[in-house]
Design a protein around this nucleic acid. Structure first.
Length: 496
RNA sequence: GGCGCGGUACCCAAGUGGUAAGGGAGAGGUCUGCAAAACCUUUAUGCGUGGGUUCGAUUCCCACCCGCGCCUCCA
């Protein structure tokens, strides 16, 4: 059974789904006002890892993720770019979905747009108003009345009881009863997106969408609510206030938050010049798998220090795992099998399972798989590995990759995608143009059969001790992006 | 100021009241016509500093120093 850090209780707890074998979870998705940055993706990678681990442990998932496609920033940016809010948001929603694919993030069972559920939100607010938790101001906005909710602050551990209502009201907040009250519904303003609803015209506040949509898809109470740690307050606190005030029930049993990502030890920010979108990194030549690996390698309950050195290290680590897989898949081995490898593989699977169960400790899971790789490599070097040993080892690798998903090598096509995107957006630097051409040349260049043919020719040349010719072939293949490895068992090759 | 997290080798990073996982880098080696790649071995008498508890602390307690987060839009 998995243990998870529950912000609500402040403890790491056994995860017990409400319904045996099934888990209902909600994760806060992106606000599509710009391209996603690596901080965003740390959280999304974590959510993806958790999804996969829960499923691997036998649970059936019902996971909802929202896309916030109307908010202040979107409206502001759309206005600045002189396009409609709808078109603006659609562009970045599309980009986000592309980025998810680049990072091998699975699609949640339900990806829901805020603007497709406006009426549900209006209805939700009407319900709150009916119970006295919401009030309407003169301009037609609605606010949540915090003094009505004695539990307010329970997630973020803030004590609002001592704050006398009115004593600290900011004079600028003229419309609200209390400075702490938050917007549920914003009255229409000229030029802004707005909807006609039963509570009047306007647009939803940020917090209400998650309350309304989670309830619609998951019910009054569900198992896990996920998000970045910065959402604890006010966003998640407000979701709880809205949902629990309306239904009188617990909204979610487990509130799990991913810690922040730092860049070179500092908070990522545009002013510090250490702000990177996923696409920035791909255009700098980093592989999608390196990025996913690095983001996955540190447990979510710890801050992750993202560095370019770390990214290189991650690339090496991924290579090591891929090379091992290639090695045991292609090795020429004697028949038979050895009990110790079956045991090793079995133990590795158990260790990984235990690591995931222990609050998604990905570091420990990685240690387990690398231990296996080292032991199996040693044995293979010593000639102890047999044909029958390959299957259990591959099985353990597969279990690993069902969660981490870094062994498939489709990095080149993803980098190429990013380059082509940059080209169409007019952001392509000269060296990136060259890189793009190189990709084009490579993919057009050689078929597998042609590669095999050239390798055979090189082998023949080597046998005839015509090293000039064999090296020329090796260079030709290298130019085409094919890397050769001479091993005891013959030549192994892979595309770069 | 309030609340919370962390300081472990050159870098990233687990972990535990009983003597430091894993990865990367470096060094050495195996393999090779050479090279690359691959693989192996190796690298912290010590886990921010000072006290305390204990037979024993990196792990618990106290103080201090440093870094980070939230408290306002933010993954």
């Amino acid at each position: 059974m998995m243990r998870l850090s529950n912000t609500l209780s402040g403890k790491t707890e056994e995860f017990r789904p409400r319904e045996a074998g099934r888990v209902g979870m909600y994760s806060c998705g992106p606000t599509v006002y710009d391209y996603g940055h690596i901080g965003n993706f740390r959280t999304f990678v974590f959510v993806d890892l958790l999804r996969r681990a829960l499923r691997q442990s036998g649970l059936k998932l019902n996971h909802v993720m929202n896309i916030t496609d109307v908010d202040d920033k979107i409206i502001r940016n759309a206005t600045a770019n002189n396009i409609s809010v709808r078109d603006y948001a659609a562009k970045y929603e599309q980009a986000f979905l592309e980025d998810m694919k680049i990072l091998n993030l699975e699609q949640p069972e339900h990806v829901v747009r805020a603007t497709d559920h406006i009426h549900g939100m209006a209805k939700f607010i009407a319900g709150l108003a009916e119970k006295g938790f919401a009030y309407k101001t003169e301009d037609g906005s609605y606010y949540f009345r915090i003094v009505k909710d004695p539990d307010y602050g329970k997630l973020s551990k803030k004590d609002f009881a001592g704050m006398e209502d009115g004593a600290r009201v900011d004079v600028d907040e003229y419309e609200k009863d209390s400075a702490r009250d938050f917007a549920l519904w914003k009255a229409p303003k000229p030029g802004e997106a707005q909807w006609e609803t039963e509570i009047g015209p306007g647009r939803p506040g940020w917090h209400i969408e998650c309350s309304a949509m989670s309830r619609e898809f998951l019910g009054d109470t569900f198992d896990i609510h996920l998000g970045g740690e910065d959402l604890i307050f006010p966003h998640h606190e407000n979701e709880i206030a809205q949902s629990e005030s309306l239904t009188g029930k617990t909204m979610a049993n487990y509130w799990v938050h991913c810690r922040f990502l730092l860049v070179e030890g500092e908070k990522m920010s545009k002013s510090l010049g250490n702000f990177y979108t996923l696409r920035d990194l791909l255009l700098k030549g980093h592989k999608a798998s390196s990025i996913r690996y690095l983001l996955a390698s540190v447990p979510y309950s710890r801050q992750l220090n993202f560095t370019f050195d770390g990214l290189k290290q991650a690339a090496q680590s991924v290579e090591r795992l891929r090379n091992f897989k290639l090695r045991i898949e292609t090795a020429k081995l004697a028949d038979g099998s050895t009990e110790k490898f079956a045991q090793l593989a079995q133990q590795t699977e158990s260790k990984m399972r235990a690591a995931f169960d222990d609050d998604m400790n990905t570091s420990v899971a990685l240690a387990a798989i690398f231990d296996m790789v080292r032991e199996a490599n040693s044995a293979a070097d010593a000639g102890e590995l047999r044909k029958g040993d390959v299957a259990p080892l591959l099985s353990a690798l597969q279990k690993f990759d069902e969660i981490f998903d870094v062994l498939r090598d489709n990095d080149a096509e993803k980098s190429r995608f990013a380059l082509e995107w940059a080209k169409s957006a007019g952001k392509l630097a000269a060296e990136q143009q060259a890189e793009l051409e190189r990709f084009a040349a490579q993919s057009a260049a050689l078929s597998d059969a042609q590669i095999e043919e050239l390798i055979a020719a090189r082998n023949a040349a080597k046998k005839a001790r015509d090293f000039g010719r064999s090296d020329a072939i090796r260079n030709q293949l290298a130019d085409a992006g094919v890397i050769l490895e001479d091993t005891k068992d013959g030549v192994r090759w892979k595309r770069k």
